[in-house]
């Protein structure tokens, strides 16, 4: 008992082994729930998979019917002394079992596109990554400098932030039609949606991070003879860099959430196109696999960036606390 309670001590910064163990558990727990729902017949399973239609004329092998329908038909057949149907409990088509989705991770890449010149999955994924990349780069190109300026000089902040504060409440997808009208139906409007979705948050977050910079640092720099632009380039920027990097990681995740909406605008492309296509053909295992691939790509990038950050900013103390 005592051992178990020790785990609940808040922020006890226990050994790294325990941390990674819990980290893996946080993934295993949902997976366990999914397995239970999929493989244990008496949990949920609202459908019956017909194995032998018996005397029911509209039943076919492999057909999914509601439990109540099956029960009625079974009673019906017994009453009429016809062949009774056989079936086994099953989940609806939209909830494939873990092993099916796991297999789809491979087969989704190897199945030919349904349409002749349609893109393969890896092409779709690559297209999505490019959209995210350009959207985020363009947003950062303007958002980060503006954020730093707004955070450093109050005149910039007061001039830009009220409007940005207002604009960030306008949902980015609302600009979809407009973006298509201006930028055409291909990648332009998609990138624009990601830029609109990211940029305004970015300015505010970066400005806030810059504002949190300890004034003593700035004052010390001033008394050492730092002037104007070097205050910005030699003090403000390096001082906030680790926090800025963290902000950018969070914002990149944000950009991913806009991806699906963005890709629906104009001609549907990328991973979204793949998902909608597969859903149309009821290949839900592929749908789940594709959704998870987005998660893996996003989360994987973030983990990589976090590792890289530790390399880049060896002096950053806040990393030790997490």
């Amino acid at each position: 008992m005592g051992n178990i309670f020790r785990w609940f001590v808040p922020r006890s910064g226990k050994a790294a082994r325990q941390r990674s163990f819990l980290g893996i558990c946080s993934f295993l727990l949902p997976l366990l729930v999914w397995c239970l729902v999929s493989y244990v017949p008496f949990i949920w399973h609202p459908k019956i998979l017909v194995v032998d239609p018996g005397g029911v004329d509209y039943f076919q092998v492999g057909m999914l019917v509601d439990k109540s329908v099956f029960r009625d038909e079974l009673a019906n057949m017994q009453l009429q002394h016809l062949g009774v149907p056989h079936g086994e409990p099953a989940n609806p088509i939209y909830l494939p079992a873990p092993h099916q989705v796991a297999k789809a991770f491979y087969t989704a890449f190897t199945t030919e596109p349904e349409q002749k010149d349609g893109p393969w999955l890896h092409e779709s994924l690559w297209h999505s990554v490019k959209i995210i990349f350009w959207g985020f780069v363009i947003s950062s190109l303007f958002g980060v400098p503006l954020g730093i300026l707004s955070g450093t000089y109050s005149i910039f902040g007061r001039l830009s932030e009220p409007f940005i504060e207002f604009f960030r409440y306008l949902p980015a997808p609302a600009f979809g039609a407009l973006a298509v009208a201006v930028l055409g139906i291909y990648d332009g409007p998609k990138i624009a949606i990601i830029v609109i979705g990211t940029f305004f948050q970015q300015v505010l977050i970066v400005a806030n991070t810059t504002r949190k910079l300890d004034t003593t640092i700035l004052e010390a720099a001033l008394t050492l003879g730092t002037r104007r632009i070097s205050l910005l380039t030699r003090v403000v920027v390096p001082a906030i860099l680790p926090d800025l990097y963290r902000d950018q990681r969070i914002l990149l995740g944000w950009a991913w959430t806009y991806l699906i909406v963005a890709e629906l605008i104009g001609t549907s492309t990328g991973i979204t196109w793949f998902i909608t296509q597969q859903a149309r053909y009821q290949h839900f295992d592929n749908v789940y696999a594709a959704i998870m691939m987005i998660g893996i790509l996003g989360f994987g990038t973030d983990l990589l960036l976090a590792k890289l950050g530790r390399r880049l900013f060896p002096w950053d103390r806040s990393l030790d606390r997490t």
Partner: peptide
């Protein structure tokens, strides 16, 4: 008229640049 290197200053808090 303003801060300058002719007056050095040592602050109470740790004002060193943590990234250097």
């Amino acid at each position: 008229l303003g801060p300058g290197q002719d007056r050095g200053m040592v602050f109470q808090g740790y004002s060193l640049f943590p990234w250097l």
